Simulated assay, not measured.
Amino acid sequence: MRGGAPTPAAGRRRFIAPARADVDPTRFAHPLFAAFADFNDVLVAPDFPGVAALDQRLGVPGKRLVAQDEDLLADGLHYERRIAAGCIATRAENWHDLFNALVWARYPAIKQALNARQCRDLDGEGSVGRTRAQAALTQFDETGVVVRVRDAALVHAWDRHAWDEVFPQGAEHWCSGTIAVAAVFGHALMEQALLPSRLLVGKCLVVQGDDDAQAVEQVARAIALGDVLNDPLELRPLPLMGIPGWHSDQDEAFYRNAEYFRPVREGREYPGPHGISR
């Protein structure tokens, strides 16, 4: 969602992805990339595919991946409006845009809902500037995760940032599917995951249920209807490397890292997951 993406805060260094040759292909066996196994050839090949070849390989419904160059940008269209018109501007040999394209191919309904919402907000933007909804939509597009849960008790522990209950003590719940990552959606999150050392935090929408695909469909509908992503504070942070099996060294000291497993801010409250009463 580059057309409305926020600029890095002062003093915060912009993430620079590693060169393709420096990425170990086995990195894509990490659970974070599990939903993109059908496109593993695109990820592990020694070279980036050309934009036209990527477009043909992915076949995004109703959209075309088009090379972002000066000729394309000369039309003056906002990035999101160009997508609404059918063209996804894509930079060649660029991890960020490659992952964006893969997410379009894997989760088109959510992507289309985000684009429609962004365009509606642009229509009403006037001189007010960036809205809270636009910020929420962009955050989810860049770092979003859909989490599916069955047990409200785990959500209440998450409310308190009681990470011991969510992760080490809750390990059996992750293993049994009582709580699960239904979709890693954020393409910036995937880009940062190229570096094994990164301790990633997803910004989550949470759905009650037993089926990952249904959870994704429910999120797409909720976004399209405007029921969610009207404010960034709706999104729940989740330290993804705390999930059992997502990090190589999940000992007691790891879970005591308060810079990563942060305590909840005073007064911070999260909306309840869809389908769970508070």
Rank of each mutant, 00 (worst) to 15 (best):
G3E: 00
G4C: 10
G4P: 00
P6G: 10
R12W: 00
R12M: 09
A17V: 06
A17I: 09
P18K: 15
A19W: 00
R20T: 05
A21T: 06
V23H: 02
P25W: 06
R27I: 13
R27F: 03
R27G: 03
F28L: 07
A29M: 09
A34T: 09
A34G: 11
A35P: 00
A35F: 03
F36E: 01
A37M: 10
D38A: 15
N40H: 12
L43N: 10
L43E: 02
L43Q: 11
A45E: 00
A45Q: 05
F48W: 05
P49Y: 05
G50D: 02
G50K: 09
A52T: 08
A53D: 04
L58S: 06
L58R: 09
L58D: 00
P61A: 15
R64H: 13
L65E: 01
V66F: 08
D71K: 13
G76Y: 04
G76I: 11
Y79K: 13
E80M: 06
E80D: 05
I83C: 10
T90H: 06
T90P: 03
R91Q: 08
E93H: 13
N94Q: 10
W95Q: 09
W95A: 10
H96R: 08
H96W: 03
D97I: 13
W104L: 14
A105W: 03
Y107L: 14
I110T: 05
L114K: 05
L114C: 05
R117F: 07
C119Y: 02
D123N: 09
S127P: 01
S127N: 07
V128M: 11
V128E: 02
V128Q: 10
G129F: 08
G129I: 11
T131P: 07
R132S: 12
T138R: 04
T138L: 09
F140D: 01
T143C: 15
V146Q: 06
V146D: 00
V147N: 06
V147Q: 04
R148Q: 12
V149G: 08
D151W: 08
D151V: 11
L154F: 12
V155K: 11
W158C: 13
W158M: 15
H161R: 14
D164H: 12
E165S: 12
V166H: 03
G170A: 08
G170C: 05
E172Y: 03
W174V: 13
C175H: 10
A183S: 10
A188Y: 06
Q192G: 06
A193L: 09
A193T: 06
R198W: 02
R198Y: 04
R198F: 05
V201T: 15
K203L: 14
L205P: 03
V206F: 04
V207W: 00
A213S: 08
A215E: 01
V216D: 01
V219S: 04
V219R: 04
R221H: 07
I223S: 07
A224M: 08
A224N: 04
A224T: 04
D227P: 05
V228Y: 02
V228Q: 03
L229H: 03
D231E: 02
P232V: 14
E234L: 12
E234T: 09
E234M: 12
L235W: 04
L238M: 14
L238E: 00
P239A: 09
W246Q: 08
N257G: 01
F261Y: 07
F261V: 14
R262N: 04
V264Q: 07
R268V: 13
P271V: 14
G272A: 15
P273C: 11
S277D: 02
R278S: 07
R278G: 09
R278T: 04
